[in-house]
Design a protein around this nucleic acid. Structure first.
Lengths: 251, 251
DNA sequence: TTAATAGTGTCTATGAGACAGTATCAA
DNA sequence: TTGATACTGTCTCATAGACACTATTAA
């Protein structure tokens, strides 16, 4: 069956639509969902179905899939749907990562995917609370990148997502979205260190974070056996902070 | 409601080529092609066809159009085709800008466009040398943004492209791609000032550019009636330079 | 010499990085 | 008091910004 949209397009000029065929690319949305826990950057992966005719059966892949033109009003809401946003509370961060498209990336035909980068605290979107989450699991990013074996070009997309986070961590507050609120400055510092892959000076880190004005105090959090640290929340969770300079070891 | 497409995808029984069996979004590529001349940032626009059934007839739009799965091997080459890359020499810069997709942006149906940002010197892709160029024309960005009236959501995409260039001009050598080689440092400085919309200190600018090591001397260029400036070319046109800090007026 | 533009020297304040110090809790 | 972690003070140094200066051409 040919859709109304396609018929309309055909009725137009040759320039509006390739004349030879109606072939449209497959269109999907995939999400690189990252978190930090157990001292490591982690990514949410699902397993491809084993059914006949499915590409990359049984392989791990980024959560995502075809755009459903009857359900999704736009790309972002499609991404949220893929992530089951109802399970993600509070400070979910979602930004567009880029798009990958070509004749070769999917054996079923020319396909293009719109990739999104999601940052979320560990508690959110945990495997096991229904929907996609039930089949999803967190994996250490370093292991996934080392072993490879993801479906499609998802390894490349994952690499781009990690690189985006890493580079933005140099001058934005993005890593704060990887923690559940309230969090402490030492926790945030450790998160930055995991993301950046190098140690960060404590004093400089504190002044940097506090002078950026994106945190509000949320009362002391009790520790185990030491001075209780101050807890913080994001002042405006919708808008991350930008620092005037990048982190950089003297040089 | 769940569509056939979604059911197929979930059940894993999708045919090898789901061309016409369920609704796929329209898929296009659009290019925000920018240049700087006449002391202003300029954008390349085309005019929408007046044919019956065409959306936004006669309106100005970004160059672009549907992906042709029989011709384009991937998104970038599709973008290059839309720009008629053969007319663009040397230092064409092309980067992905983002994607815009939704049910409402095209009256013909759910559509998604992959937008690219192209930076090119004035000489390249001039209106009048065949193909798209024949119908294309340069327009001052400030006027276009003020008057509006572009087809589809192209004004939003243009805004994003300009914003991308502006923000990257703070810490990269991207504006160098807006000039024909060889160019002089004063020319480059004026280009930065046009892009950034504010004056830049000469001395700081020079040390910044030269210490970034992305330029190579190309002999003196004759001026009119004054000291001849040194001409420069890009050392590696494929890879723009990143500065360690952003430009910023004291504070 | 003058006008005009190209290019350089120099001073200063900012603020990040380094690191040693102090504060506050439990046991 | 000790240990552990949270937090602060201070010194130094690179460098961006500001701006005055010199250089090189044509007329």
């Amino acid at each position: 069956m040919v859709t109304k949209a396609a018929k309309r397009a055909k009725a137009g000029t040759g320039r509006a639509r390739p004349t030879a065929s109606f072939a449209l690319p497959l269109a999907s949305v995939d999400v690189v969902a990252l978190s930090v826990f157990e001292q490591a950057l982690q990514v949410l992966l699902v397993r491809r179905p084993n059914a006949r005719g499915e590409p990359f059966p049984g392989r791990q892949a980024l959560p995502g899939g075809f755009i459903d033109v009857a359900v999704d009003v736009d790309l972002v809401s499609c991404a949220r749907r893929k992530l089951h946003d109802k399970t993600a509370r509070g400070s979910l961060y979602l930004e567009q990562l880029g798009s990958w498209g070509g004749a070769a990336r999917d054996p079923r035909g020319w396909s293009a995917t719109h990739a999104y980068l999601a940052l979320l605290p560990k508690d959110d979107a945990l495997p096991g609370n229904g929907g996609v989450g039930a089949e999803a699991e967190w994996r250490r990013v370093d292991e996934v990148l080392r072993k490879g074996g993801l479906a499609f070009d998802h390894l490349e997309i994952l690499t781009a997502g990690v690189e985006r986070l890493r580079s933005k961590a140099e001058y934005t507050s993005l890593p704060a979205y990887l923690l559940a609120e309230p969090f402490t400055l030492p926790q945030l510092q450790r998160t930055y260190e995991v993301v950046l892959g190098r140690p960060v000076d404590k004093s400089g880190f504190r002044t940097r974070m506090l002078s950026a004005q994106f945190l509000v105090e949320a009362g002391y959090v009790e520790g185990d056996s030491n001075r209780p640290p101050m807890g913080y929340r994001l002042r405006e969770p919708e808008t991350p902070a930008f620092f005037p300079r990048t982190f950089s070891p003297r040089g």
